[in-house]
Design a protein around this nucleic acid. Structure first.
Lengths: 139, 139
DNA sequence: CTGGATCCCGCACGATACTG
DNA sequence: CAGTATCGTGCGGGATCCAG
């Protein structure tokens, strides 16, 4: 494919102060970004940013998510250290999810994105109308 | 679909100045967020944030993207007013994509996320190792 | 040649049933 | 309640074809 600078075989992590190319698919940062720049991850973190929640509460909060994607995304978030899973041996067992300090840092960044979406929605809707009108005019 | 200021009937939103529930699947902000909190959108906007690019240059830059997703995502971004598409009637025709001021605002928010991923990658990797070790220990 | 549409197919996701 | 297992479908990737 693309060689550019020669990379060590096996682990293409650059050595010196050079930062990795986040656009390269095999870059670890890019892979982390792919996991984090995901609608379910964003919504789950945002929900847990408001308060700790149990599995089904989370499922109700994040409307439209399937149990499969919820449990799958939660496990990925937990593995990345962004979410803490706590099991309480009640009967039946209850499991609570909380955002970690690391996840909280990320959430701060995500909030800018969410705030942007909320505040700029009118401009976006207007742009959509404009675009659709142009497309209709082209036939 | 788009009513602008007043709440249209049919939207189960709460009434007065209360902001809509971004966790509700049918909330327009949530839908915008779903489009924006997408790995291809993020990478494309980040690439165009560096410089205007043509279709194939973008395809090379954003490694791993298929031309289908590139053209599809670009069209969605253009429709949302985040990206400007310019056709130059050269031979062969060249199409250039540029980020708009609106998209630039969003990109500022996205950059926090990207920066977070770059700076916190070590912690995440460490958390992954920890998680994997715990899972291995459980059998 | 560049930009993009279209077809086909595999895989990831959604819906649901089932288990501890 | 908190998941896993199973199955069907729709989205995304790759190849191919088309327009200019």
């Amino acid at each position: 494919m693309q060689e550019g600078t020669s990379q060590a075989p096996g682990y293409p992590e650059e050595t010196a102060g050079r930062e990795p190319d986040v656009f390269a698919a095999q870059c670890p940062t890019r892979q982390l970004l792919d996991r984090v720049a995901d609608k379910w991850s964003v919504l789950i973190l945002a929900a847990l940013g408001e308060e700790d929640m149990r599995f089904n509460a989370l499922k109700r909060k994040v409307s439209g998510i399937s149990q499969k994607m919820l449990s799958q995304t939660l496990r990925a978030l937990e593995r990345d250290g962004l979410v803490q899973r706590s099991v309480f041996p009640t009967i039946p067992v209850s499991v609570s999810y909380a955002i970690t300090p690391l996840g909280c840092e990320l959430l701060d960044a995500l909030r800018s994105m969410i705030d942007w979406a909320q505040s700029r929605l009118p401009q976006v809707v207007s742009a959509q109308r404009d675009f659709d009108a142009r497309m209709a005019g082209m036939g």
